[in-house]
């Protein structure tokens, strides 16, 4: 029943000084910074999802986060956007500590979650009805915003579908629209959580190209969570690798392949080597986690036997 009830964490004034209100962070300080961040669900004794995570992301960088399933990647996204407060450490964006939901972040998830009662164009324009200053300008400057939304739809090849409803479109088309929706208000920070996870390989590779193009043009800061290591290597400047739960950063790789990257790039030896390295890192943490779980289980078993 709790549909709209999730209480936003205390709305301190600093929450409103999100990425684009402050003029610009002093050079050298990262745009997104995590200091010793830990997160436990269900109180301090509860399930520990993240442990002592440190990240420093400079403005305009494209970051990818990879790691085994359940290691807390989605939780990390919630922490950065302020949807979930950390139980340890602190998160800051653009020099201000995050105390509640940031107000201008673009987000897209694996599930396109478009509104089925709105045609595509109006779906894409939804953020403009919420984010200031667009919200109060929208009515008076409708034409300008319409043109903008149409231009954006055109970059992802959906210009002919603006009057169609989401359920009339394929999954890939819906995901393109979702991407447009996350970008329409020119966010300084874009958070993508496995946005291409449910798509077929060809559509996925095509959308990598689209995303790269938009990013190269606008240079927002982007954090991409993904299971697909090739996707991470194709898109990101920096790849963070996380350990199994409780998640923490165990490795960081700079991807210094030239842009724009193409599907051909993914067959270059440097690219393949990088993907291999990351894959073995993740395989290792998964094995360790499995061993630890087994050891824990047998330990628990013996204590139980003793007790009985």
């Amino acid at each position: 029943m709790l549909a709209l009830a999730t209480p936003p964490a205390a709305m301190a004034p600093s929450a409103s000084s999100g990425p684009d209100t402050a003029p610009s962070s002093p050079p050298g300080t990262p745009f997104v910074q995590l200091d010793g961040v830990g997160l436990s669900y269900g109180g301090p004794q509860g399930l520990k999802a993240l442990n002592n995570t440190n990240m420093a992301i400079e403005k305009g960088r494209f970051i990818a986060v990879v790691g085994p399933s359940g290691c807390g990647k989605s939780s990390l996204m919630k922490l950065v956007t302020g949807l979930q407060p950390p139980t340890q450490g602190s998160v800051s964006v653009n020099g201000a500590k995050v105390n509640g939901p940031l107000k201008i972040v673009g987000m897209a998830f694996q599930n396109p979650s478009l509104l089925p009662w709105r045609p595509l164009l109006s779906n894409v324009m939804l953020p403009l009805e919420i984010v200031q200053p667009h919200r109060s300008r929208l009515r008076a400057n409708k034409a300008e915003y319409l043109a903008k939304a149409r231009a954006l739809l055109e970059t992802v090849g959906l210009q002919e579908f603006e009057t169609k409803f989401p359920w009339m479109l394929s999954g890939g088309m819906q995901q393109r629209a979702n991407l447009c929706r996350s970008l329409i208000h020119d966010p300084d920070l874009l958070m993508l959580d496995e946005p291409f996870g449910a798509l077929d390989a060809f559509t996925r590779e095509e959308l990598w190209g689209v995303l790269q193009e938009v990013w190269m043009e606008r240079r927002f800061t982007c954090i991409l969570v993904t299971h697909d290591l090739r996707e991470a290597a194709y898109l990101a400047d920096t790849i963070y690798v996380m350990s199994a739960r409780p998640g923490t950063i165990i490795a960081r790789h700079e991807v210094d392949l030239p842009r724009p990257r193409t599907v051909d790039t993914t067959f270059e030896p440097r690219f393949v080597d990088l993907v291999h390295t990351i894959r073995s890192e993740i395989a290792q943490v998964r094995n360790e986690a499995k061993k630890a779980a087994k050891a824990g289980a047998t330990k628990a078993g013996t204590t139980e036997q003793k007790a009985s």
């Binding site: 549909a3 709209l4 999730t6 936003p8 919630k78 956007t81 302020g82 949807l83 939901p101 940031l102 107000k103 201008i104 972040v105 673009g106 987000m107 897209a108 998830f109 599930n111 979650s113 509104l115 939804l126 953020p127 919420i130 984010v131 200031q132 929706r181 996350s182 208000h185 958070m191």
Partner: peptide, 13 residues
């Protein structure tokens, strides 16, 4: 209402 959609909108303020 999908929680994801809620997250998207809340992070827009």
């Amino acid at each position: 209402v999908e929680p994801e959609l809620e997250d998207v909108l809340r992070s827009l303020g």
